[in-house]
């Protein structure tokens, strides 16, 4: 898939699941694998929040 930011090529592993994070090897941006309708898309990953953790 192409990076929504820089159009670089992002390799989404065949066994990846919705909710996983992939990174663009060109620009380093993180994206979350999401499902829209029946197809997979990349959406901007949330940044680390103040309440994130264990």
């Amino acid at each position: 898939m192409n990076c929504p930011d820089c159009d670089g090529n992002i390799n989404v592993p065949a066994d990846a699941s919705v909710g996983e994070i992939v990174s663009c090897p060109d620009c380093g941006a993180d994206f979350e694998i999401a499902k829209k309708g029946g197809s997979i898309e990349l959406k901007q990953a949330e940044t680390v929040g103040e309440d994130w953790g264990e």
Partner: peptide
């Protein structure tokens, strides 16, 4: 229930 899938959830 997840909001980001990590190795743990898998």
């Amino acid at each position: 229930v997840f909001d980001r899938v990590r190795a743990e959830e898998k």
